[in-house]
Nucleic acid binder design. Structure first.
Lengths: 115, 115
DNA sequence: TTGACGTATTCCGTTATGGGTATACGATTC
DNA sequence: GAATCGTATACCCATAACGGAATACGTCAA
C-alpha cells in the first residue's frame, strides 16, 4: 500500500502547501482559475489539478460563468481537523511541557505506582 | 517531484490516520512501543516506522528506560495547523454557507460591479 | 466557421510512501 | 557467554503523488 490518496480526506488534501495557499486565496472570495494561476505563480494545469483534489474532498465548489469557472471555498471539511486538534490545544497553551504528560499518565492508568 | 515527504512537517505527518491514532494514545501518557503495538493492532515494525516519522517532526519524544523506549507526545508542532485553521473557523460556525463568500468578495476587490 | 480564450485532462518521469518480512542491535537475564 | 526481550532498520512491492508539457474540450468573438 502506498500513502493514502490526497483525495482521501481534508487531512491529506491540505497537507500540500499549494493547496493551502489556494484555500487562503479563496477565503477572500470566489476566483476564476486564471486569477489563482497568476497569484500562485504556478502553471495552469497544476492549479487545475490542485483544484480537482480540493473539489474531490469538497473543500471548494465551482460555478460556471461563461467560459470561466469560479471557485469558492467550502471550509466545512476542515472541521474534523480542527476538532481533532482541539484536544491538543492545552498542550501548547500552557507550560505543560512535560508536566502534563506525567499528570495525564498518573490519572489515566499505570495503576502500579512503581516508580 | 513527488509528494512532500511525510517528515516535511506536521501537516504531512498527521495526514496518516495511524499516526493520528498514535498521538491520541500518547496523549494519555508515555508508552513503550509494544504497548502501542498492542493497542493499534499493527505489526511492531510499522509502529516503529510511524514513530520515526513523528519523531522527525518532533511530535513525539523518546526516553530510554532499560530495554524499552518510552514515547511521549509533544503537541507543539500541531500548533501551526491549528493556527492555519483558525481563520476558517467562522466559515463553519455560522450559516455563511455562500453568503460569506459573496460578502468577502464584495469588500475585498472585484471593483467592477458588473453583474 | 474559424479562431482565441479559459480550463481540464492525459502522459511522462521521479520520488517515496506504507505494509510485509527478515534481521540487526542493545539491554537484560541466566 | 548464550539466550531472550524490546525495538529499529533494511529490503521488497504496489501505488500514486507532483510538476512539466502537450493537448483536448467548451465558450465566446469575428
Amino acid at each position: 500500500m502506498a500513502r493514502a490518496a490526497t483525495t482521501t480526506d481534508a487531512f491529506n488534501a491540505v497537507a500540500e502547501p499549494r493547496r493551502r495557499q489556494i484555500l487562503d486565496l479563496l477565503a477572500q472570495g470566489e476566483r476564476p482559475v486564471n486569477d489563482l494561476v497568476a497569484m500562485l505563480g504556478l502553471a495552469q494545469p497544476q492549479v487545475s489539478k490542485h483544484l480537482r483534489v480540493l473539489r474531490e474532498v469538497d473543500l471548494v465548489r465551482v460555478r460556471d460563468e461563461g467560459r470561466q469557472r469560479l471557485y469558492r471555498l467550502n471550509a466545512e471539511p476542515l472541521r474534523p481537523i480542527h476538532d481533532w486538534l482541539r484536544k491538543y490545544e492545552q498542550s501548547w497553551n500552557a507550560r505543560f511541557d512535560l508536566l502534563d504528560t506525567v499528570l495525564a499518565e498518573l490519572k489515566e492508568e499505570e495503576p502500579d505506582g512503581t516508580d
